[in-house]
């Protein structure tokens, strides 16, 4: 899901590694074979996967937090149950993905604990959208429909990923995303067909989320922010398409639906170029994007604080059970 991959330290291409092994590895990848956790893999592949999947996983965990703000407030019993199940799934997706990342990190003696520490220290980044604030119930709808929609576009693109454990996790995740998409659609549909206040609330949320949605896919090219590593993920057949291709796919799928609900997009230059067969749009502020993912977004500090508190306040629990667990008779 997270397409903005920063430069990975210590993973210069295979100067010292066994060239024969590398050639054989690349042949497996080319043949569409799946790589497993204990297979030989080039350092660059492992590092790229760790970076990608730990970001993806921790973004799911952090992504639970903005929506969670609306869980207790959901306006009907059915919505309360639906959004609880949906946010639970996000935590569940985080669990699947972090397990995949943790197994990849195991050779370095690193674990879940290190990932949490990296998150809190700012070394492990999470997705730009989850640094943003939520203001109204319509945010729960827009997150479920459009933010998740963007995530679905990115994730389905990796359903054939060369790394077996990641690909299998994504299969499970994408199957659940169908429910998420409809959960989001249902909230949005009720607001779009509701009172003038409900419609206004929905439009305001769409306007506010628009730049974040464009940013979601990462910059179109490395020049924009100076450090996109998207070509590495395509070289190793982890994903198929570029950031811009994914953004275009998102606009293709969702804009007609947005317009069909009578909603507008806050960009006067937005239009579909029939000749190029792609959407023209105003670029979001990529400098702001860089600031956001450096944990300088509107709600970065508060969201991290929640994870920090969960970590700190439960230290005694981890300490209590970290030895041989007691098995109940």
């Amino acid at each position: 899901m997270y397409n903005f991959i920063e430069h990975v330290n210590g993973s210069e291409p295979e100067a010292v590694e066994d060239e024969a092994k590398y050639a054989q590895f690349m042949e497996r990848i080319e043949n569409g074979e799946k790589i497993e956790a204990d297979d030989w893999m080039p350092e660059e592949y492992r590092q790229t996967l760790i970076k990608l999947i730990s970001m993806h996983g921790i973004s799911e965990i952090m992504g639970a937090l903005p929506e969670k703000e609306w869980v207790p407030k959901a306006p009907t019993l059915y919505r309360k149950l639906g959004i609880m199940a949906k946010v639970q799934d996000e935590m569940g997706h985080g669990q699947l993905l972090l397990r995949v990342a943790e197994d990849l990190m195991a050779p370095y003696g690193r674990s879940r604990e290190d990932l949490m520490m990296d998150l809190l220290s700012g070394d492990l980044k999470f997705h730009n959208v989850f640094h943003m604030e939520t203001r109204t119930w319509a945010d729960a709808g827009v997150i479920g429909w459009l933010v998740d929609g963007a995530a679905i576009i990115s994730q389905t693109n990796m359903l054939d990923a060369s790394y077996g454990p990641y690909q299998r996790a994504l299969q499970r995740i994408c199957a659940e995303e169908v429910f998420h998409a409809q959960h989001g659609e249902a909230i949005v549909m009720a607001l779009a067909e509701g009172t003038p206040e409900q419609k206004a609330m929905l439009q305001e949320a769409v306007d506010r989320w628009w730049p974040s949605l464009l940013m979601f896919f990462g910059p179109g090219s490395a020049e924009t922010t100076g450090s996109s590593k998207q070509e590495v993920t395509t070289k190793y057949k982890i994903r198929k398409s570029s950031n811009e291709e994914l953004r275009q796919a998102f606009l293709d799928k969702y804009l007609p639906r947005v317009f069909s609900l009578g909603l507008t997009i806050p960009d006067d230059t937005l239009r579909y170029d029939e000749e190029k067969e792609q959407w023209e749009y105003e670029q979001p502020d990529w400098n702001e994007f860089k600031q956001i993912i450096k944990n300088n977004g509107p709600r970065s500090a508060e969201r991290l604080r929640l994870r920090e508190l969960a970590y700190e306040n439960n230290r005694w629990v981890r300490r209590a059970l970290s030895n041989e667990p007691v098995v109940q008779a």
């Binding site: 309360k80 669990q95 929640l306 969960a310 439960n314």
Partner: peptide, 27 residues
């Protein structure tokens, strides 16, 4: 539901949430 995301570990968060949902279902 206030606990969601704050349990001792992620696995417990997921398990606890099902119980919370079931309890709401009972209500």
């Amino acid at each position: 539901s206030e606990w969601l995301g704050l349990a001792p570990h992620i696995e417990e968060d997921v398990a606890f949430s099902s119980i919370t949902q079931n309890t709401m279902g009972h209500a």
